[in-house]
């Protein structure tokens, strides 16, 4: 390709400029050391900051009303939450297998594992909807209390990511190559990881 820079810079002293020749690979500032597409890691880092901020906000808000939070928390179904933890952990395992399969160029196998991952994601969402359903039936909504506002927001944001994750898995299943599969499953693992932190903070601590 022709040089992009304005031609003016090609003075006779251009030898003085010490452009270090840039290899394309070091251009992501280290992100390329991580599996999958570096931009996915920009997203993952951003997501972790957001969820982290929400969990800390939740803890801070709890200081203001420990009894109220504990009381509201009694309405949460910890067994459902625990089951969902298991579901997501298992889906994460399947995602690992999908990556292993594509490394062996076993596309069909890879897709099967991705499908398994996605099915468990759907199970997670169904359990989540059942949880929301019982809350709503009990007259508990988004604005019932600070606890429930944050509960719905945080778990809702998380569930939304599961939905997006399903989309991502679908897309990489259509174009399965190593980078794509690693990128898609990295997003999925992030969702998994966020949940194992959300669960104790919102469901268990009191």
């Amino acid at each position: 390709m022709e040089p992009d820079q304005d031609t003016i810079a090609q003075h006779d002293d251009s030898g003085l400029m010490d452009h270090d020749p840039q290899s394309a690979s070091d251009a992501w500032g280290g992100l390329e050391a991580l599996p999958g597409h570096p931009l996915m890691w920009v997203l993952i880092l951003s997501e972790l900051v957001v969820f982290g901020a929400f969990l800390l906000t939740f803890s801070a808000a709890r200081i203001g009303d420990p009894a109220g939070f504990a009381n509201d928390q009694l309405h949460l179904d910890r067994v459902m939450g625990g089951i969902n933890t298991l579901v997501l952990l298992t889906s994460g395992l399947f995602a690992v297998f999908a990556v292993r399969a594509i490394k062996k160029d076993a596309v069909l196998q890879c897709r099967v594992w991705l499908a398994g991952t996605a099915v468990l994601g759907i199970v997670f969402l169904i359990v989540k909807l059942i949880e929301y359903g019982t809350k709503i039936d009990a007259g508990i909504g988004l604005e019932t209390s600070t606890f429930f506002t944050l509960y719905y927001l945080i778990t809702g944001f998380h569930a939304l990511h599961v939905v997006m994750g399903l989309g991502v898995l679908g897309v990489v299943a259509i174009w399965p190559n190593l980078t794509n599969i690693e990128t898609g499953t990295a997003f999925w693992h992030m969702i998994d990881m966020v949940w194992v932190l959300v669960f104790p903070v919102i469901y268990l601590l009191r």
């Binding site: 599996p35 420990p66 009894a67 504990a70 009381n71 928390q73 009694l74 933890t85 952990l89 994460g92 395992l93 995602a95 690992v96 499953t185 990295a186 693992h189 992030m190 998994d192 990881m193 194992v196 932190l197 669960f199 104790p200 903070v201 268990l204 601590l205 009191r206």
Partner: peptide
């Protein structure tokens, strides 16, 4: 709904963090 002491709370968070770390280190 009685408040947890610091040790039980720490245990709960340790278990959660351990899982998160396992996912990071091995799955991610």
């Amino acid at each position: 709904g009685a408040m947890l002491g610091i040790l039980p709370a720490m245990t709960i968070m340790m278990v959660g963090s351990l899982k998160a770390w396992l996912i990071l280190r091995y799955y991610l």
